[in-house]
Amino acid sequence: MAFGPYLFLATLEGLVMAAVLALTALGLSLVFGVMRVVNVAHGEFFMLGAVLAWAVATTVSGHPALGFLAALVVSPLIVGAVALVSERLVLRRVNYNPEATIVATIGILYILQQLALTFYGPEARPVVAPFDYRIRFPWFGYSAYKLSIVAASALVLAATWFLLARTRIGLVMRATQFDAETATAFGIPVDRVYAGVFAFGAMLAAVAAVLIVPIQQAHYLMGHDPLLLSFIVVIIGGLGSLRGTIVAALLIGLSDGIISVFFSPTLAKIIATMAVALVLVFRPQGLFGVAAR
């Protein structure tokens, strides 16, 4: 294949990765931005989303699209409920203390991982894509499902932006993010906002996982990479910034896709890590983050 089509293919692969990454990282970013909680268990909510997607899709009989759609609805809801329980039982009890929540979420990580290993098993299992159609470009055919992941992700990101910027719930979340004590003094139940944000962040990771699981099998250890890459995206983009998360996810996703195809996946990870180091040195608040007050 000539260079141009090869680059185009790499760009498409990078876009798919960026789309999934943006959703996952946005969940992590919102949780830190509003609650100041570094959620080390975020990757396990992603894993749980994928594992539950397999469970739901295999339970529903009929056309694969039915099972997939059921998974797309049910899996994020269950993951959101698990996150809600974790928030109530663990994070609230340590009073959202930043250091304590890191240790606590490491604990949640291992609990979720071992529960998945116990009940789901060590096998990697695929979910059948809801449709099987290839778009014919002049140089190669490409999975229409993969492109639909990009569209679905863009839709969810746009809906999240609308929620944050145009609704009362979003206003309450932004006020809490900025100053929780003053928000309380104006009648905002901050602990309920925290619970909702934690569940919503986990649900975003679960949606990303359901979208990716037809092209990347569900496995109980699959949460590590999304967690690491989400941290990279969130640090580069700026914690709590929707715009920063999307731009950084595109940067990391595309560079990973293109560098992996032309050079090696290892080099892509090295460059991403170097980018994080440079951002931390020269702009610690991230590209679009607000400097600490």
Binding site: L171, R174, A175, G187
Partner: peptide, 24 residues
Amino acid sequence: YVPQGRRLFAELTVAENLEIGLMT
């Protein structure tokens, strides 16, 4: 309550700050 140092939600607009008060 008007806190010391104002404690406005500085990233929000004037209208949004008022909206937070109105919600109460």
